[in-house]
Nucleic acid binder design. Structure first.
Lengths: 196, 196
DNA sequence: CGATTCTTTGAAAACAGTCAATCTGTGTGG
DNA sequence: CCACACAGATTGACTGTTTTCAAAGAATCG
């Protein structure tokens, strides 16, 4: 099995931002490929996080584990998504989150210092990344909205509508966790909704 | 009453980012001061939003009104905070949120086009603003965490710890809305917590 | 097939929401 | 200065939803 998945990233960039071959080479030069098999960690709480990370293949989850052992899912990421922990990256502090693989995955890791430098050196790339970040922010605010205003059933309907790509790749119990309810509740809600 | 509160913004910038007098003048040149009295709107759902906005005085709330008339508070902002609707700003679409004043307030409005240009023209300012945005993102993720993992009582304790500056300026019923509970529930929680 | 993991179901308990009434503090007008 | 109105906060009784705990059913994988 060949394992150079940088081309996935190249394809992703196409149509999103116009870069020269040299510029892409500069990105390639700093990319490190990392395989994370199912149930393995990409990041564990307590560790530091100093990279920008792109999922080239597979799927992962980011989650918080509380003192009493409960896991709360912050988010999912599959191929062509960015993943990581902005808080730990900006603060330099140990991560409070965990990231592990739901499927065998391949991640491209870009050391943050160098990545940031490339954002400055290649303005179109920099503003592209900035847009990605701002969209993440908007998404996270949308999630807060839904959390505040929607019933459990509406939350699930909203998730199905906005994230159909996860439905068949993520266990239902993890979706429940992401939505802030127990697996039992989600199961019952689905039964209710199916009746219509 | 003199009404030039740009100096509040200047004071805010000091120590955060080193700008020359000319650079500050360029910011001043595009700033428009707007008074928003208590209960008046800075932004109404359906309107477009094309500015970056800095609160020079007073306090405001951002909230979502659902079909059945319920209000859900997205956030608060007081002097020295930025306020606005990034989703509407980025998309150009009509706002789904409302922003109104909790106290008589004065806002500095920077037309987004020109503001963005200044971020490019004055790199230290640009990266300062970028940092602000990233911190907002991190904050919003923190809020999601708390929503998912904390009990009602923990949510309130967390709010008190992180946002003491709002406690004596925002009605308790609005804090309840922000935390995703009814005013009655918050009242009961406070009584419980006081017993210890 | 057997083991493991995930989902579903049921019954009881805990929790938060609703509705309605009362209480408290603030500010206004007579 | 007092009386009143108003907004916000509290309290109680009740209802509805979600969680918890336990067990049984699917589905998946080696």
């Amino acid at each position: 099995m060949p394992s150079d998945l940088f081309h996935v990233f190249e394809t992703y960039l196409q149509g999103k931002v116009a870069l020269t071959a040299e510029e892409i080479d500069r990105l390639r030069a700093i990319a490190v490929e990392k395989k994370v098999y199912r149930k393995q960690y990409l990041l564990q709480e307590g560790d530091t996080w100093k990279t920008d990370a792109f999922v080239a293949r597979g799927g992962l989850r980011t989650y918080l584990r509380t003192e009493n052992g409960q896991e709360h899912i912050i988010g999912f990421a599959i191929e062509n998504w960015w993943i990581g922990n902005r808080e730990a990256l900006l603060s330099g502090q140990p991560s409070r989150w965990n990231i592990d693989a739901i499927e065998d995955s391949v991640i491209l890791l870009f050391p943050h210092d160098r990545f940031d430098q490339l954002c400055l050196d290649i303005p179109p790339f920099g503003s592209f990344i900035q847009t990605i970040l701002q969209r993440s922010f908007v998404k996270s605010q949308r999630r807060i909205e839904t959390t505040l205003s929607a019933t459990a059933e509406q939350k699930y309907a909203d998730f199905v509508e906005r994230n159909p790509q996860f439905l068949d790749r993520v266990p239902q119990s993890m979706i429940a966790s992401y939505l802030g309810m127990t697996p039992e509740t989600l199961s019952r809600i689905r039964r209710q909704a199916a009746k219509r």
